[in-house]
Amino acid sequence: MNVNGLPQGSSVWGMVRQYLPWVLFLGFFALYPIVFDSPSDHTLGIKMMWFAIAATGWNMLGGFAGQISLGHATFFGVGAYAVALADEYEWNPWLAMILGMGVAAIIAVIIGWPVFRLKGHYFTIATIGTGEIAFLLVRNSEFLGGTEGFLMRSDEGFLNFYWGGRQKWEFYYLGFVLLLLAVVSTVMISKSRMGYYLQAIRNNQEAASSLGVPIAKYKQLAFIYSAVFVSIAGSYFAQQLQFAGPDEAFSLDTSIRITIIAVIGGVLSKWGPMIGAIVFLFLSEWTNIRFGGNGFDLVIFGFIVMVMAAFEPNGLIGLGNRFAHLLEKAKS
């Protein structure tokens, strides 16, 4: 698979190219809580995990298939509320997470069915609409906690999806396993027929359909996949915060954050969302300290996204590849 637009050579350099990202990213994420070992560092790391899981999920649809969604907060919310309700009614949160994944998939089908039959940017516009509808429904539903949402009181322990508690390395590694799950399944899909078909759809839908690709079906599959992984991120998020509320989980703000993370990192690469998560997290922590937590970080990210869109649509990964190209040229 050649999502980065670089031919894979059989040379040593090519091998390094192929495996270096795995070593770098997984190494970074695996060692993070050991190197940075204060509780506040762990909190940051946990945040980074759910950003990365959500953006990786979003990217299957937004990156591979090229269908930009601005409504994925709905699935994030479904995941968060699934475990919150489980806490309320004393079900097992793991089972609730799996149930949430199913609900997210069903909602993806309900939204995707009509929308994928339209051409152009209708999908993006429609997802803003469906996201807002879900947000308002949740805020106005008493069963779902209205504007207040749910406070949770999970007991510590692996089986309670609260291993070690909110600031502990154990909980961080729970997230790491979920992220691995997301990355490995993304890699597997990217190497399968579905991965190729999604890229064909992003590149040129008419050509893809002339070659026998059922466009709507594959967009739908990508949408389901992305909804499911974003809902996992939502469950992990709510378990950490011990809270699920409409403004935190279901709002357009959340959708935009997920999108920005993927876009900054580079939507054409499986590693993009992870780079995006790391950069987003540290920049947003830094701006929160520097300017206070008033959403100023989004101003900066909006600017970065604009610059990216104009100069390097493939995000930081794209910039990195350009740099690598230059290096190679300099060598030869």
Binding site: N2, Y197, Q199, N203, G212, L268
Partner: peptide, 17 residues
């Protein structure tokens, strides 16, 4: 309407899939 971001082989694979 070649797929610009795919290699020639990958372009043809979309057909053979």
């Amino acid at each position: 309407k070649t797929f610009p971001e795919l290699t020639v082989l990958e372009n043809v694979m979309i057909g053979s899939f």
